[in-house]
């Protein structure tokens, strides 16, 4: 089992909500933004991004809307809903607690 992949899988929702929370984005933009902000660490299997986005949309955490780009192309922009914002805050709070605890345990001086 790839530990990094498992961690990414477990935190996909937080990452996506976090990126969409800054500004509405479409699928390809989200992938690029994740790569950029993680300095290339997070590399999604791109086809699996859409099932994840649609799952979030079905749960009411994001909404998707088709918009026309200046180039004339049409892209589906995802926007965070109030419910999504609340879910993101909860997830981040859990994550901060978890990472603090992990750091405290694994650090050499135990603090």
């Amino acid at each position: 089992m790839n530990y990094g992949r498992e961690l990414l899988k477990g935190n996909t929702d937080s990452l996506l909500l976090s990126v969409i929370g800054r500004e509405p984005m479409y699928g390809y933009q989200i992938i690029k933004e994740l790569e950029k902000r993680s300095s290339g660490y997070f590399q999604f299997r791109e086809g699996t991004l859409y099932p994840a986005l649609h799952r979030l949309e079905k749960a009411g955490l994001v909404t998707g809307q088709w918009k026309k780009l200046p180039s004339g192309q049409v892209r589906r922009y995802y926007t965070l809903t109030d419910k999504g914002r609340q879910a993101l805050e909860e997830k981040l709070s859990v994550w901060r607690g978890f990472s603090t605890a992990i750091n405290a345990v694994v650090s050499p001086n135990g603090a």
């Binding site: 479409y26 699928g27 390809y28 791109e46 589906r76």
Partner: peptide
């Protein structure tokens, strides 16, 4: 239809 359009755009 939505999924296929999105994949094509991607």
């Amino acid at each position: 239809q939505v999924v296929l359009r999105e994949l094509r755009a991607h």
